[in-house]
Amino acid sequence: MDDLGVRVAQVLEDVVPGGAWQAPFVGPEAAFRNKAKLVVAGSREEPTFGILDADRRGVALPECGLYEPSLAAALDRLVPAVTDLGLVPFDVPGRQGELKHLIVTGSPDGETMVRFVLRSPGQLGRIRRGLERLHAAEPGLRVVSVNIQPEHKAVLEGEEEIVLTEADTLPMRLGDITFHLRPRSFFQTNTVVAGALYRQARDWVEEVGPTSVLDLYCGVGGFALNAAMAKGVAPRRVEGVEVAPDAVASARRSAAELGVPADFRVGDARALTALGHDLVIVNPPRRGIGSDLCAAIESAAPAHLVYSSCRASSLARDLAALPGYRVTRARLFDMFPQTEHVEVMVLAERVTGR
C-alpha cells in the first residue's frame, strides 16, 4: 500500500489484521467526478459559475480537471445556455438575488441531470420557458429540476424539489445494474470506483453464500441489488432500509426492472433492533453506525457483516464495539483521489461461541 493506505491501516490496526488487507483499488487521478456543484455569483449579464473567494464573491472555474470528459463537455454547452436564461445570481454578502447553485450530474451513457438551486420560486417561469433552449444546447439533457433553498446559511439545497421534465430520474448504469438517480438521491461521485466497490461486495456475498441479506443505509440500492444479483445460494431474500424516500423509490424501480427478490423500505437504520438475516451490510455516513446499531447487530448475530466506510476512525470505533466479529477481508478504495479521504470496506465473520 502507498503512504495513505499505510496510514489507514494504522488507524484500523487494532480491529483489522494485517493479513486481511487486499490490494487497494485505485481509479484515475483526474477526470473521475460525475457531478459538478457550481456556486453561481456575479451579475445577470455576467454570472460566474465556480466557487466563492474569501470575500464571498464569485470566482469562475471555466475548466476543472476533476470532471469526467463527458460531464466537462456538457458543462461547456450548458453554462452559456443557463446564462442566456437571464437568471439573477444570488449575492451572498448582499443577500439578494435568486440562483444560488447549478448542480450537474453526468451518467456513464452521456446523459445529464441539471438542478437549479433558487432562493425562491420567483425565477421558476424563466427556467420552464428555457427548457427547449437547454435541450438544444445539451442533447443528452434528461432531467431538469429546481430546488428551493430560502435560508441564508451554508446548506447546499432545501427540502422542496420541482421536476420540470417528463423524466424524473437519471439512469446510472454500472455493470449489469441500472440505478435510477432522482434529483435528491445520493450517489457516489466517482463512477469507476463505485463500480469496483459494488463488484467487491458482490464477490464477498458470493463467497459466503447467505440466504438473506439486509442492507442498511442502502441509498438507491447499490449493495442490496448487487447482493441480489450475486451467484450462489437461492432463494436469497434481500432487504434494504434507507431514510430518504426518493432513494427507496429508485431502488424499488431498479429491483423491478431486474426482476430480483429485493425489497426496500423507508426507515432509520439507527432505530432498528430486529435484524433477522444471515448477512448485514452497512454503508453509513461519516459518523458511523453508533453504539445502538452495533448492539443490535451483536444481539442478532448474523453470520457475516460487510461494512463500507468513508471514515476510518469511525469504522475503527464501530468494529471495536462489535467484539463478536472478526475481520477476514479488508480493501481500500480511492474514491476521492488527490485527498486524504478514502472508502474502506471490510468483511467480518461471527466468531464461533460469541
Rank of each mutant, 00 (worst) to 15 (best):
D84T: 02
Q123C: 05
R350E: 02
S314P: 06
R237P: 09
E206Q: 15
Q96V: 07
V92L: 05
L275Q: 03
L134F: 13
V243L: 15
Q22H: 14
D76V: 07
G50E: 00
D53A: 04
C64K: 02
D55P: 03
V344R: 12
N226D: 13
K231E: 13
V79G: 03
S70E: 15
L197W: 14
R253D: 11
L164M: 04
E207L: 15
A201R: 01
E343V: 03
L102C: 10
E340Y: 07
V344L: 12
K37A: 02
G19Q: 14
G130K: 08
T169E: 10
A320C: 11
V205G: 09
I162E: 09
V59Q: 00
R265C: 09
L12D: 07
F264D: 11
V143N: 04
W204D: 03
D334T: 11
D246T: 11
E138G: 05
C310H: 05
K231W: 02
R287P: 08
E151L: 09
P261T: 00
V15S: 03
V193G: 08
R119Y: 00
V117G: 06
A303G: 14
R184N: 12
K37N: 06
E132D: 15
R184P: 10
G232K: 10
L99M: 10
G175E: 01
L118D: 02
G259Y: 12
P171I: 03
V143L: 02
S120R: 03
A316L: 01
V8P: 00
F336L: 03
V39G: 05
A312G: 05
E29A: 15
H180M: 05
G122I: 06
G130P: 14
H277L: 00
A60T: 06
L279F: 08
G50S: 04
M229Y: 01
L225E: 06
A247T: 01
A348M: 13
R33N: 07
R56W: 01
A320I: 03
A244W: 05
T328Q: 09
P302D: 10
P62F: 05
L272V: 13
P121F: 06
L124W: 10
E207A: 00
K100N: 08
F25T: 14
P80V: 00
N190W: 06
V143E: 08
L156R: 00
I127H: 06
A244D: 13
V238N: 07
A41D: 07
A348V: 06
R133E: 14
E68H: 05
R329W: 09
S313P: 08
A73I: 07
C294H: 08
L216G: 09
I297A: 07
V114T: 02
V208N: 04
N226K: 11
I281Q: 09
P183I: 10
A224N: 07
A36H: 10
S120K: 00
K231P: 00
T189Q: 00
D318G: 12
M172Y: 12
A194P: 13
G290C: 03
I297P: 03
I297V: 14
E46K: 05
I162R: 14
A348N: 01
P245I: 11
T328I: 13
G97K: 01
P108E: 01
R253N: 03
A247H: 04
R252S: 06
R128V: 04
